[in-house]
């Protein structure tokens, strides 16, 4: 195109133009960055300062002290809390991932009512976790619908015989809610990667004599890796910091770390509130650190494979 490039500031001397350009960039980024810096980064910094004993709000200022961390690490049940938090976060991520990969691969096919199915499977993605909690209580509680069906066909006699799925440290109820909500999410991400790929490389592999399992393992899986990494990282981080589901469906003390953090923060005793901030920092650092390692590992893996 032969039209001259329009630039409203082009008649200005170059140094000034560069400065104005930078100013414009900063100005346009400022509102969004301000919200995130003040609220999100500010929140984390304030939480960190409080966990070190800086809390003029409660007339406490023993900054800097590691006292709240020491108390936390030596308190009864803390390490069990850590275990449960990992357990409830990891298992649904893993199980959900396997279910999602298979669902995404199946979705590539043409089948009757596919259009309708694409509405249906996304529904859990669109509604709050609390709806999932509510459905789980209705179905899986000891006197719930499933227990009643089992009673009807004569498998159990009394609700006590139904396995405890909710309000128990096995965490089955919590994990059911996570998987139910998150499979559509991970499926969507993997499916959208698959859509961008096209069938060529898989067909080539098949032509060259690979069996379906080999095709999946050596051709499809590496190609959908970016989707898998993103999906699992987001889901794990969410589960690790999730509050309402373990709060309602968990087995009581020791609770997961986010629930313990809320309980401590909800305590009228200011010292406990500072302890809550120590828990918050532990959650952030552990979750952030793990995800960093996870993504670093993935980068190295891609590099070794010759892709960047």
């Amino acid at each position: 195109m032969e039209l001259p490039k329009a630039n409203p500031i082009k008649h200005l001397p170059q140094a000034r133009r560069r400065w104005l350009g930078r100013f414009r960039i900063a100005l346009m980024l400022a509102p969004a960055m301000a919200v995130l810096v003040v609220l999100y980064l500010g929140a984390l910094v304030l939480a960190f300062l409080q966990s070190l004993g800086y809390a003029p709000l409660y007339q406490i200022n023993t900054f800097p002290t590691l006292h709240y961390y020491q108390d936390l690490f030596s308190s009864t049940g803390f390490w069990q809390s850590v275990f449960y938090t990992f357990y409830y976060a990891l298992i649904p991520t893993f199980v959900g991932l396997i279910l999602s990969i298979y669902l995404a691969l199946t979705l590539r096919k043409r089948f009757a009512l596919k259009r309708l199915f694409q509405y249906v499977y996304k529904l859990p993605l669109m509604i709050p976790y609390l709806v999932g909690v509510s459905l789980t209580i209705l179905l899986f509680s000891n006197g719930g619908i499933i227990a009643r069906v089992l009673h009807l066909i004569g498998i159990i006699d009394n609700p006590v015989e139904f396995p405890r799925i909710l309000y128990d440290h096995s965490g089955l109820g919590i994990m059911i809610v996570y998987i139910w909500k998150q499979v559509p999410f991970m499926t969507l991400i993997i499916y959208s990667v698959l859509l961008g790929l096209g069938p060529e490389s898989e067909e080539a592999a098949t032509t060259l004599g690979a069996n379906p399992w080999q095709t999946f393992w050596y051709v499809t899986l590496p190609q959908i890796m970016p989707g898998i990494i993103t999906g699992t990282a987001i889901v794990f981080a969410f589960n690790f910091g999730s509050f309402e589901t373990p709060f309602i469906l968990g087995g009581g003390f020791p609770n997961t770390l986010p629930v313990e953090a809320w309980r401590a923060f909800d305590d009228p005793e200011p010292a406990r509130r500072l302890g809550a901030m120590a828990i918050v920092m532990v959650i952030s650092v552990v979750s952030g650190g793990l995800l960093y390692l996870y993504i670093a590992w993935y980068r190295r893996f891609e590099k070794r494979r010759g892709r960047v």
């Binding site: 301000a34 500010g42 910094v45 003029p56």
Partner: peptide, 19 residues
């Protein structure tokens, strides 16, 4: 710059207290 704004903000917030 990010850190300066954040820390400034926190100090400002802290100074509102204790009345």
């Amino acid at each position: 710059w990010l850190w300066a704004v954040t820390i400034g903000f926190v100090l400002l917030a802290g100074s509102v207290l204790g009345q």
